[in-house]
């Protein structure tokens, strides 16, 4: 990375936040535009088989579909910013009201996975880097690459086959509701969380290992060795802080991907999360719900990636402080 002046860091932060906002605006526009250009528009879609031209026209007016595109977008955006994505076409409930409890479930799933996978994969990556070329390194690399080649639903089904069908330890279907007890939650979440952990570990492990190896090969580590610093202190105090910026970034990026990976995992385990809601809405062409889910998923993803970049820069003193001080 290039070095930056103090003011350059500030403008980097501003630019990065701005570009994140642009991405979110873009997806919101795309989401909106797509529905507006829909061949048979929402009115036709809602009426389905019973569509007559008169009925469609009156519904179009009721939905405001006869206004110019830009006005409709700004209207829609204004409402969306206030949490109003319209009502579901399938059951007439506000899309946001349907979505919020589901979002909570998805976040519980994704963060449980993050809490397990980040420390685990980072330590394995660190250990693999220390034991470079040894059996532990080779084995962890092979196993991790194996999971990278598997579709995530396959990992889920293998776990179901083994732990739910053969050994009957955990349920194949993770149905939870607000009233479910804590142990019930743990019982239901174990397999989906384990699946997510296996899906996400490979990347974290690879990046951590590469970051630590990169640092361990540098001159200042050799310098520390010539000073006679004990090995464990070299790794923890000399190498790790310098790999920190990559590791912090990868943590945020992993969380971003976990949030999106839940879409498939929730389908495998019929878990009532936002991903399942979105997939069902896509199947029924329930556009307001698709829009709300799409924008929310993208916004979380974009913000976490933005944090990855920002934190990655801020934990590094070379980036944070001016070059030749006074």
């Amino acid at each position: 990375m290039t070095l930056m002046q103090g003011s350059a860091v500030r403008s980097f932060v501003v630019a990065r936040i701005a570009s994140g906002l642009v991405s979110i605006l873009f997806i919101s526009f795309l989401v909106f535009l797509g529905t507006a250009l829909l061949p048979g528009d929402a009115a036709t879609a809602m009426l389905g088989q019973e569509a007559t031209p008169e009925l469609v026209e009156s519904l179009r007016q009721a939905l405001g579909l006869d206004q110019p595109l830009l006005i409709r977008y700004l209207d829609w955006l204004w409402d969306a910013l206030h949490g109003d994505f319209g009502v579901s076409l399938s059951n007439g409930q506000p899309a946001m009201a349907m979505l919020l409890p589901r979002l909570e479930n998805s976040l519980i799933l994704a963060f449980s996975a993050a809490v397990i996978v980040l420390p685990l994969a980072i330590s394995i990556g660190l250990f693999a880097a220390i034991k470079k070329g040894r059996p532990f390194d080779t084995m962890s690399g092979l196993v991790s690459a194996l999971f990278l080649s598997m579709p995530s639903f396959m990992i889920g089904y293998v776990l179901i086959y083994v732990f739910a069908v053969e050994f009957r330890l955990f349920p194949a279907v993770s149905s939870v509701r607000a009233s479910t007890s804590l142990t019930g939650w743990v019982w239901a979440l174990t397999l989906p969380v384990l699946t997510l952990v296996l899906v996400a570990q490979s990347h974290v492990l690879k990046v951590t290992r590469a970051a630590v190896l990169g640092v361990m090969g540098s001159d200042y580590i050799l310098m520390a060795e010539t000073k006679g610093i004990p090995r464990i202190r070299i790794i923890l105090l000399h190498a790790l802080p310098n790999a920190l910026s990559s590791i912090v970034s990868i943590c945020m990026i992993t969380m971003a991907h976990l949030i999106v990976d839940v879409v498939v995992i929730e389908a495998v385990f019929s878990y009532p999360g936002m991903g399942k809601l979105m997939v069902d809405a896509v199947a029924y062409r329930d556009i307001p719900v698709v829009q709300a889910c799409g924008v929310l998923f993208s916004a979380i993803f974009v913000v976490l990636n933005m944090l990855a970049d920002l934190l990655g820069v801020l934990v590094n003193p070379r980036q944070r402080l001016p070059r030749r001080g006074a």
Partner: peptide
């Protein structure tokens, strides 16, 4: 910067 699977679902 946008999650691909979400974008594909929408499109």
């Amino acid at each position: 910067s946008i999650p691909h699977i979400i974008l594909a679902l929408i499109v």
